[in-house]
Each structure stands twice: as C-alpha cells, then as structure tokens.
Write a protein that binds this DNA or RNA. Structure first.
Lengths: 215, 215
DNA sequence: CCTACCGATCGGTAGG
DNA sequence: CCTACCGATCGGTAGG
C-alpha cells in the first residue's frame, strides 16, 4: 500500500489562482500529513488550509469544523481499509475460510502499521465524544461486514462455532485491534517483547487465538 | 471502584490563600474531570488550573507542559490499574492459574469502562508521539508484570503453553485492550452487537479466546 | 476562494 | 502561588 501524500499545487499551471481541482481531497491529504508529522493535537483548520496552499477561510466550504474534518478522514479511512482487506483476500482466492479469517486479521494490523496517522485519526476519541456521523457509521459497517460475512460463511461450512456472528466478529476484531493500537502507539516496541516485527507477532497471535472461533 | 473526583477547596479553612495541601493531586483530579466532561482536546494547563481553583501560573511548579500532565495522569493510571487487578485477584485466592488469567482480562475491561477518561488519557497518542517518560514506563512495566508472572506460573504448572512469556502476555493484553478501547470509544454500543453489556462479552471473549494460551 | 479584520484562548514570564 | 502583562494562534465573519 502506498502512503497518502499530497501534491501542493500544479507545477506550472496558473499558480496565481489557487482553485484546486479537488480542494476537499487536498485538505484531507494535508490533514493526514499534519497528523503524521506533529500528532493529532496539531490538526487545526488553519494549519490544514495553510498546508494545502489555500487561505484559512477556504476549508469552510468543505468542513465546518475540525470534527467534520475528522469524520471525513475516518470515512475515507474505512473505505481504504475495506479496499485493502478485499485486495488481500482476492490475492488468496484458494484460501479456506479459516485462512481467510487469519488473512483478514493480519491485514488489519498491516494496515494500521502502514498508515499510523490515518489509523489514529479513524479511532480518535474526539469522534467518539460526539455521536458518530452517519456517513462514518455506514463506512465502518461496510468494512466490518467483510468480517461478519466471512464468519457466517464459516459457520455454514462448519469450521466456525455457532453463535451470533457479529459478536464473534467483535471478538476477532478486538484481538487484532488491540495489537494494532498497541503497535501504533509504540506500546510494544518500547518494551521487552521479543518480536521487533509486530507483523510476525500478528501472524502468531491470529493463528493461536482464532482457535477460539472453532467449534 | 470509585470514580476519581475532586474536592475543590477546604470548606471553611482560610479560603483566602489557595495553598492546597496537595496541589499536584488537585490538578490531576481537575484534569480528569475536564477530560471526562469535554474530551481530551479540552485539556489545557489554564483550564486545569482554573478548575483546581488556582491561577494559571500555578501549575508550572508541578507540570512544565501539558505533556507532563499527561505523563503524570498515565503514571497514576497504571498504578490504579495495578491496584485494581491485584484486588481482583486477592478476592479469588482459590482460583486456578487459568482462572486468574481470565479474571485479569475481565478486570482490565472493567477498569477501562469504569474510568473511561483515565483510560483514554493513559493511551492518548500524544504520549506515544514523544518518547514515553521513564516514570510511565516503570509504572506500566509493573502493571504488566502481573500478567507476565501469572503466565510464567501457568507455564510451570503446565496449564499454559511454552513460549516467551512476554509475547504470550502481549497476546492476552491485545485481546482485552482491543475490547476495552472499542468499548470506551463507543465503537460497540453504536453498532449491532447483541451484548449491550460489554462486560458480559468480555467474559465470553476471555473464556473462549484464552484457549490460545493452553498447551 | 481571498484579504482583512475581530474576540477568545493559549503558553510564557516578570515581579511580588 | 498571585496579578498583570506579552506574542502567537485559533475559529469566525464581512466584503469582494
């Protein structure tokens, strides 16, 4: 996967008027750059506008507040995550349902480590304080559906134990989400765990603990 | 467990001079109140001082910056978490090592849900952006040691599979940390999961998935 | 989408 | 630990 990056301006095309082809996307890219470089607390509308090369009044058309900006980042992030998960499954079309579950779990951690700023922003608690916008709910639901439907198929095939599929999905999600969060927040690398590579640990973890999903 | 709360001033004792018996603790309590009410982004030194009833210059003696304040909250939080985990184990002195592991896992989620503001602050990514202060590392290490030593004892007793204990501890930690984070961030209650009570889910989750720790 | 303003709030400091 | 300042930055808005 490729890191999100921003091209400030078109190189030789009418530099005088800053009318972007897609200012909204430019602002989203700029926001992720800011978060990646200076952390979540550094994200302001003014900084975002400045980095995107527009005046501080310009973002108003697209994002009424920083919370709206966060929501857009989260929605975009869930879409990217969903695409990444689906790509990973598509590459292994011969995999069994149990293997697909493992692939999803590892891919989730991969995504978080490859896009730490995006991942942090997606789960930033500022979003949770207010009621989550509907657009974010929808995007998150679609992404989570991949996991739920895989589990349901596994139940039909008899390789996953009975139970309410969304609950089992939450268990599987919690496991890899915890590892992803601890990795992104540097809680792991700072300590004395043997595996310097969190992905290696993710594979072992998924392999061992997803036993809890079997009949 | 009792929520952290702050007593602003002594009721009838020399109200003119705001010399607290323990300003540092009063500031920590005020900070948690602010986070609980208005979120992490609302925490500033000035607001903290104001809520503690002192001038905005007063905190300087105790916390040079907001990051120092966060570090102190995190250090305090790890100590509280450790005490809570040990209390929970002490109440069930007859439990087997496998049961102790399950108790620790559920208690971790309980702590997060009972102290959401503290839990969020402990893992606030602002801490992770900078190198974690040594005092926080020490407090976190002591807390994590409860889990590691339990696993080591379980390995000696033959009820936990072989392997580098800190790695196994990280697996167990990731599982409950993921559920705790998703609960605190309201990612669970908003969706279609059946269990309205995250603690009920935590018990099932720990019971099923800690199977991955068995030989 | 820009410039030129505004009031509010922040961290910081001098002096007591 | 307080008061009284300071420069910087923020979100917001009027007018083009």
């Amino acid at each position: 996967m490729q890191p999100t990056s921003s091209k400030k301006q078109s190189p030789n095309h009418k530099n005088k008027s800053y009318h972007h082809g897609n200012l909204r996307q430019a602002l989203l890219d700029a926001a992720l750059d800011i978060i990646a470089e200076n952390g979540l607390s550094a994200l302001t509308l003014r900084q975002t506008a400045s980095r995107a090369g527009v005046s501080h009044a310009a973002p108003k058309r697209h994002f009424a507040s920083v919370l709206d900006l966060y929501a857009a980042i989260a929605e975009d992030g869930y879409c990217k995550l969903r695409n990444y998960l689906q790509e990973r499954i598509a590459k292994r079309s011969d995999a069994s349902l149990s293997q697909v579950l493992a692939i999803l779990g590892v891919a989730y951690v991969e995504f978080a480590i490859a896009n730490p700023a995006l991942f942090r922003a997606m789960f930033h608690s500022a979003l949770a304080d207010r009621s989550t916008p509907h657009s974010v709910e929808v995007a998150a639901g679609k992404t989570l559906d991949i996991l739920v439907s895989t589990i349901e198929q596994g139940q039909e095939a008899g390789v996953i134990r009975k139970g309410y599929a969304p609950d089992l999905a939450l268990c599987a999600w919690s496991l890899v989400h915890g590892l992803a969060v601890l990795s992104v927040d540097r809680q792991i690398s700072n300590r004395r765990f043997s595996s310097e590579d969190p992905l290696k640990l993710a594979r072992e973890l998924v392999e061992q603990f997803y036993l809890g999903l079997r009949p």
